[in-house]
């Protein structure tokens, strides 16, 4: 079983369109959406949710205001400006600022700060027309998407083992921070979808630094390549000189948005021409994966 993670560094390059196309092309795969901040894959794959699970992560300080003596110890020890003075001289915790470090809980002389678990979102086990899917929804203003990402991957792996699937296809988050790190560590292949813009190239370099840092096997494809053929050429050369694999390019096409509006993958709704480009990328990726 192999796990492929699709990421992009820069957002909006077409990561989810590529992921859903891969889902259409794969034969025996489990799907996972690790872009838990802004999950979109379900808009195309239309999963039927089978199991809903709560995502609990860390704790949150809560002051029992009516018992607060107003001594200010919590105010002094909190490094996150989460302690707010109220009109009556007592204090409360601003949940959006609370880091869950528990220091105020420990030092409150009256021991009236509670430390309940923090409910940070939900994750789902679902069924789609292309197989099982694991996805999640991070609560609004919730933190710690890195661990939710790990959880989604772990569950996808469990289901893939149970179903003896050949492949796990993961839609990853943008950026280079904790959710991305959590989605690529230990994966068999990372596919970076970029675009031939200076921002795209800039972010690609940062992303490739990250995948190199974590020793991930990295494959690159360019979306909307004909917006700037010269930049596309630069990207190809850069990728080849870095020892990663360039696996194809897709032209600028209204077919991609059209598919999205229809709730379909480009493979399901696109013209033969656009499909050919995506199939080439898929085949290139597979031939590299089979090599080991």
């Amino acid at each position: 079983m192999k796990e492929i993670v699709i990421i992009s560094g820069k957002g909006g390059t077409g990561k989810t369109s590529i992921t859903s196309s891969f889902a259409s092309l794969a034969e025996n795969a489990v799907l996972a959406d690790c872009d838990v901040d802004a999950a979109d894959l379900h808009l195309i794959l239309d999963p039927e949710v089978k199991v809903v699970n709560d995502f609990i992560s860390g704790n949150l300080a809560v002051i029992k205001s009516d018992e607060c003596l107003g001594c200010e110890v919590c105010l002094d020890v909190c490094k996150f400006d989460a302690v707010v003075r109220q009109g009556d001289g007592s204090f409360k915790i601003d949940a959006n600022s609370c880091e869950g470090c528990g220091v105020c809980v420990e030092f409150c002389p009256a021991s009236i700060i509670e430390f309940p678990q923090r409910h940070c979102g939900q994750w789902f086990e679902s069924q789609t027309r292309y197989g099982a899917m694991v996805h999640a929804k991070l609560g609004i203003a919730a933190e710690n998407s890195g661990r939710l990402v790990s959880m989604v991957r772990q569950e996808a792996k469990r289901i893939a083992e149970e179903q003896k699937a050949d492949l796990i296809i993961v839609d990853g988050p943008p950026g280079t921070g904790c959710p991305v790190i959590a989605s690529i560590t230990g994966a068999d292949a990372v596919v970076v979808v970029t675009e031939p813009t200076l921002s795209g190239l800039h972010d690609l370099k940062r992303t490739m630094k990250l995948t190199a840092h974590f020793g991930s096997k990295t494959f690159i494809c360019v979306n909307k390549w004909d917006i700037n053929p010269q930049n596309t050429g630069d990207i190809e050369r850069f990728v080849e000189s870095s020892g990663c694999q360039f696996i194809g390019k897709i032209p600028y096409s209204k077919e991609v948005t059209k598919a999205q509006i229809e709730g379909k993958s480009v493979i399901e709704s696109g013209t033969e021409e656009i499909k050919t480009h995506i199939i080439t990328i898929w085949e290139n990726l597979n031939s590299h994966l089979l090599k080991g």
Binding site: G146, R147, V149, A182, T185, G186, F214, G215
Partner: peptide, 12 residues
């Protein structure tokens, strides 16, 4: 015997 970590850990 391993002389160093063989993977980068991160919630894995």
């Amino acid at each position: 015997e391993a002389v160093q970590a063989d993977v980068e850990g991160h919630w894995v």
